[in-house]
Design a binder for these strands. Structure first.
Length: 508
RNA sequence: GGCUCGGUAGCUCAGUGGUAGAGCAGGGGACUCAUAAGCCCUUGGUCGCAGGUUCAAAUCCUGCCCGAGUCACCA
């Protein structure tokens, strides 16, 4: 039992455009981890925006405003995303903030003092149009290999700072072997191990030809990726507030998309070692959401707008769908039909209707008052549900955790059909009816608690309909004990949690 | 091209040596508290292809086909 605060991070999002469903996916998962951790202790969720770099500068220039004004205008859109999906961030850091930039500079100075960086020459073929350096081997007929570009490339040579990444190769390999579970899923571990094994080159960490970045003391700016990685420690006061920093670092889970594994699984650990800091306990690279098996991208025109999705199905249903539909580590193919099916079948028919029918019967047979019964009549075998769900969620096995909760949902639906409350009422078997109704309501209380990390709004709605005070949050060890639902509680049957959708028009 | 992952019921997937599984969809039934929901029963698969190892292969080996991803600042 660690008393340390569970520290969870998402990548900071590169604000080159509108947020899409993929960004939400990561952030929601982080929020579930945070809420799950809160059932046993304290938690801290960090997210934010990555605002430097040429693409941002170019977009701002195209709009005729300064990069700072550009990012200031976009950031609220990203913050709105977390709010819209019920994500509670304990901090939201922007790389343009002073508190971040001074840490970046301090880290640079520290690396220099430790001899971890040196001034060298950065050379390569450069495509001005794509603003990208290309390896000679990648060039196609001596031109830019991007099929949509194919322009001539030019040889660029500039003085820049380099981080001594290559010397960490053996230490990384040894660390990987000694810690086979520090990077998940296994497939990403394999890829990164192979990448390290094949050799590392020192990393150019400054730019002379870019102006929109964290300024270094010598008029160059910091390489945007190093700038971005440092958010994880700048936000918690590295070099500024040591006691605060040590209360959080190392991170317990750093969620990333598999595309940025290289930065988090090779450069990041080496950088932390260079600073003499411990590594995060787990870096988890989750899969992609694809649309009909195709990668989501602007050029394909198949980007799913998360706000539209939330408007149609509700934020909680989207949260549920994203974490229930596929194993968290692997890709899954999004489709309108799939989320609709989950909504109707799992949420409306199984869960929503269970709540509705249960409270309707309690209203009809017992005037909405939870009966008083002897504890001995409690028979539902849900004792270990809390542990199962906690272990699953905390271990990023969201689907497995939800499967476990649904065993109780289905169990209650089955129990109702088997014991037939309506028949008990007709036959005047009051004791049996009391016991049954109590069990059902108590089961619903458990479901509300267990689902709170996934669907906080709906869990709260269940809690209120059950007539319970406060929120469906708190220590599961204390709350998930069978029989804690107070007899005499007046339930408040309300609107269906997941009403039937009136149309099946696809989301634009 | 190198590397990675995958190809199992109509759909989404679990199953890594020992008589083919789940959920959803489809079909049938009994019920009525409920969002025409829920419950019970059920149809359905030569486990990508071809070889090989083994008493025994979806599961191990080899080759091939197909799909996706990655190797470039997209979660």
């Amino acid at each position: 039992m660690s008393q340390k605060t569970t520290f969870i991070t998402t990548p900071i999002y590169y604000i080159s455009g509108e947020p899409h469903i993929g960004h939400v996916y990561t952030t929601i998962a982080a929020d579930v981890l945070r809420r799950t951790a809160l059932t046993r202790g304290s938690a801290f969720l960090l997210t934010g925006t990555d605002e430097h770099g040429q693409k941002v500068a170019a977009a701002a220039a195209a709009a005729g405003i300064s990069p700072q004004a550009w990012t200031d205008a976009l950031v609220p859109r990203w913050q709105a995303l977390t709010t819209r999906f019920g994500v509670v961030c304990d901090d939201f850091i922007r790389t343009t903030e002073e508190r971040h930039q001074r840490v970046v500079v301090a880290v640079f100075e520290a690396l220099k003092a430790r001899g971890e960086v040196y001034l060298g020459t950065y050379e390569g073929w450069y495509c001005t149009n794509d603003e990208t350096f290309w390896l000679e081997a990648k060039l196609v007929d001596g031109r830019c290999p991007n099929p949509e570009c194919r322009r001539e490339v030019q040889w660029i040579s500039e003085q820049n700072w380099f981080f001594s990444l290559a010397k960490y190769r053996d230490r990384l390999l040894a660390y990987y072997r000694a810690n086979p579970h520090w990077l998940k899923p296994q497939s990403v571990w394999n890829e990164m191990y192979a990448a390290i094994e094949s050799g590392l080159e020192d990393l150019c960490i400054s730019r002379s030809n870019v102006s929109w970045g964290v300024p270094l003391p010598d008029s160059r700016v910091m390489y945007v990726w190093l700038d971005a990685l440092l958010n994880y420690i700048s936000a918690i006061g590295y070099g500024v507030d040591p006691s605060r920093f040590e209360a959080y670092w190392p991170a317990d889970v750093q969620l990333i998309g598999k595309d940025i594994a290289r930065f988090h699984a090779i450069i990041w650990p080496a950088l932390l070692w260079a600073l003499d800091l411990p590594l995060p306990r787990l870096v988890y690279a989750h899969g992609w959401l694809t649309v009909d098996g195709q990668k989501m991208s602007k050029s394909r025109g198949n980007v799913v707008n998360p706000f539209a999705l939330a408007d149609r199905f509700g934020a909680d249903a989207v949260r549920y769908f994203l974490l229930r539909e596929a194993a968290f580590g692997s890709d899954f193919s999004y489709s309108e039909q799939k989320i609709l099916q989950r909504y109707v079948s799992d949420l409306g028919n199984d869960l929503g209707n269970l709540v509705h029918r249960s409270l309707a019967m309690l209203a009809k047979y017992r005037d909405s008052l939870v009966p008083a019964i002897a504890p001995s009549s409690l028979v539902l075998p849900a004792q270990h549900l809390g542990e199962r769900v906690y272990e699953a969620f905390a271990g990023l096995q969201f689907r497995e955790g939800l499967d476990a909760v649904w065993e109780l949902v289905s169990g209650l639906n089955r129990l109702i059909d088997e014991r037939k409350p309506w028949a008990l009422a007709k036959a005047g078997e009051d004791a049996a009816l009391d016991a049954l109704l109590y069990e059902i309501c108590e089961g619903l209380r458990w479901i509300a608690l267990c689902l709170e990390p996934i669907m906080p709004e709906k869990a709260r709605a269940m809690w209120q309909q059950l007539g319970l005070a406060g929120e469906p949050t708190g220590s599961w060890a204390e709350l998930l004990q069978w029989g804690l639902l107070p007899p005499g509680t007046r339930t408040v049957p309300g609107a269906p949690l997941f009403p039937r959708l009136l149309d099946d028009v696809p989301v634009a």
